[in-house]
């Protein structure tokens, strides 16, 4: 098995410093929609300049480089232990090179490990698959937007939200309202329906890896995604919570089987800096980034 440490460092660098083109394009279009001279337009203009500058200088788009979340699909016979070691080494190197802020803090002592490694840090999920290639997705999930992420248990009497897609719609809009600008709107919402409390949040975050133009193959969910996108923007919270036309840039919904007793809806709120990057390693050992 080849040593992919350097490739993982490059993956981290790309995720931290280069916003995916679909995100940048969506922010550009959002800026055109805002009132000229408004605080909302000014915020999006600053954001666009920052994106360009970060890419050119190869410095972090946002200083909160977040929790690095790796989703790893690996072929039969690969060692997940070896991959995990290489990933941990890579985030430490990336921290040393200032692509990442040291973000791993001991929950008891408050001590920062200094290199983004620690107990269950960074986050890694391994999935063996049938292909002979390795595919790794990386999401850098910031803390400000993580703090406004939310989980609801349906039914929710306060919101008159029952156990159906209308109930889901109601709680998602409530979550966007409650977040206001604190999660660095405009946001991308990853929503998961079902699962248990833990699996539901993981599923919600995985939705953030989907491109903005990815249409949900399930028609009811595709319709819900579009409706939530329109309605969340009607709330008028706007970029940074300054008021304005763009509060979300996309909504992606996934489902999981659940227990008869439980109906969870998890909303992974992602800031405009939806930093996702992916990498493939062919059977011949060639590394490609996307």
């Amino acid at each position: 098995m080849q040593d992919l440490t350097d490739a993982f460092v490059e993956l981290v660098r790309r995720a931290a410093t280069q916003l995916p083109p679909d995100m940048e394009e969506a922010i550009r279009k959002a800026k055109e929609r805002e009132e000229p001279g408004s605080a909302a337009e000014g915020a999006l203009d600053t954001i666009l300049k920052n994106i360009e500058m970060a890419r050119e200088r190869s410095t972090p788009i946002c200083q909160d480089t977040g929790t690095p979340i790796f989703e790893i699909h690996y072929p039969l016979g690969w060692s997940t232990r070896a991959l995990a070691e290489q990933i941990r080494k890579a985030v430490a190197i990336a921290t040393e090179r200032s692509y990442l802020r040291p973000n791993a803090v001991d929950s008891l002592t408050g001590e920062n490990s200094g290199d983004n490694t620690g107990e269950d840090f960074p986050t890694m999920h391994f999935h063996e698959w049938e292909k002979d290639t390795l595919h790794v997705d990386l999401l850098l999930k910031g803390g400000g937007c993580e703090n406004v992420s939310a989980q609801y248990k349906l039914p929710d009497a306060r919101l008159k939200a029952g156990r159906d897609l209308e109930g889901v719609r109601r709680v998602v809009l409530d979550a966007v309202y409650r977040a206001q600008g604190k999660g660095c709107a405009p946001a991308v919402l990853g929503v998961a329906i079902g699962g248990d409390r833990g699996s539901s949040y993981i599923k919600a975050k995985q939705q953030l890896l989907r491109p903005l133009d990815d249409r949900n193959p399930t028609p009811q969910l595709a319709e819900l995604e579009e409706r939530l996108y329109e309605e969340a923007n009607e709330l008028g919270i706007g970029p940074m919570g300054f008021g304005g036309k763009t509060t979300v840039l996309g909504v992606k919904v996934g489902t999981q089987h659940r227990l008869p007793a439980s109906y969870f809806v998890s909303i992974a709120y992602m800031c405009w800096a939806n930093r996702r990057a992916s990498m493939d390693v062919t059977a011949e050992g060639e590394v490609q980034y996307a």
Binding site: A43, K49, N50, M53, G142, G144, C184, M240, F242
Partner: peptide, 13 residues
């Protein structure tokens, strides 16, 4: 005073 969240490279200048 509200700075633009996430505009970290620009503000660092």
């Amino acid at each position: 005073l509200h700075a633009i969240g996430g505009a970290a490279t620009l503000i660092a200048q």
